[in-house]
Amino acid sequence: MIPTSFPPRDEIARLTARALLEVGAVHFNSEEPFTLASGLPSPTYVDCRKLISFPRIRSTLMDFLAVTVMRDAGFEAFDNVAGGETAGIPFAALIAERLALPMTYVRKKPKGYGRGARIEGVMAEGERVLLVEDLTTDGGSKLSFVDAIRETGATCGHTAVIFYYGIYPETTEKLGAHGVALHHLCTWWDVLEEARAQGAFEADTLAEVESFLSDPRSWQAARTGG
């Protein structure tokens, strides 16, 4: 069903942050930092995949993402919704259902057999494709998916995510230079504000998280000798 309610952006951000905290998707640890895919340390980690196991939260956030995309990009802006392998696939399916559009997904790399395809499902030349993922940090992983979509002759000028780190200024610049607009529900700053409001973590931990969010490169360099 296509959602028709458009809550204010700040309320969407607050409720999304609250949902992530409620399902235990947010992890803060300043004493034993997490290791990111880049190999760099971070006192924060978010696991949006958990959301698929909570029907009420899942449904609410997908309504939020659908209305955010329609508000920002347009009601008739897309012909196809593509999920990025693997975390984006369930969310793409849910968004495609809400927008009444075909759904496809994009592999990280071609299959090693058969057609060697990166696009699964039906994507036609000239279609306007919305790329859906669970989150983005610096936007880098999105570019490979966008390029795979464009190789079919389709266009892809928008990507939608539940969670955007919001701490690396080059992210929107990198995506923008590639002709891609980013749509998101909340950032680490929204989560930090809600965590403080709830008293979800110790004050010292939240202070260290804020230090990281304010200058992640320096925080990481101080802990890696960089």
Rank of each mutant, 00 (worst) to 15 (best):
T155Y: 08
A195Q: 04
H183K: 07
I162E: 08
L185F: 02
F145E: 02
H184G: 10
L175D: 07
G166W: 07
F163C: 05
W188G: 07
I167D: 12
C156I: 01
E194W: 15
E193P: 15
T187R: 00
E202S: 12
L185E: 02
E170S: 14
T171E: 05
P169F: 01
G157C: 03
A177M: 13
D147N: 05
L192S: 06
L182P: 00
A148N: 01
L175A: 10
W188E: 13
W189E: 08
D147M: 02
T187Q: 01
V191C: 11
L175F: 06
T152P: 00
A160H: 14
F145P: 06
V161H: 04
I167W: 14
R150V: 00
G176A: 10
T187D: 02
C186V: 08
G179F: 03
A148F: 02
Q198V: 11
A154L: 04
E202T: 12
L175V: 06
T171H: 09
V191N: 10
I149P: 04
I149V: 10
E151K: 00
V191Q: 13
H183L: 14
A203S: 15
V191S: 09
L175Y: 07
R196P: 06
A148V: 01
G157S: 05
G166M: 12
T155M: 03
F201E: 09
D147T: 05
E193L: 12
G199E: 13
F145S: 03
T155G: 06
V180C: 10
A200T: 07
T159A: 11
V161F: 05
G199W: 12
T155H: 10
G176L: 08
G157L: 01
H178L: 04
Q198E: 13
S144N: 06
K174Y: 12
G153R: 09
L185I: 01
E151S: 01
G153I: 01
H184E: 11
T187K: 00
R150M: 00
T159G: 10
H178N: 11
Y165R: 12
D190E: 04
A203N: 13
P169L: 00
Y165T: 15
H184C: 09
G199R: 12
Y168R: 15
L192G: 09
W189F: 14
H178F: 14
G157M: 02
C186I: 05
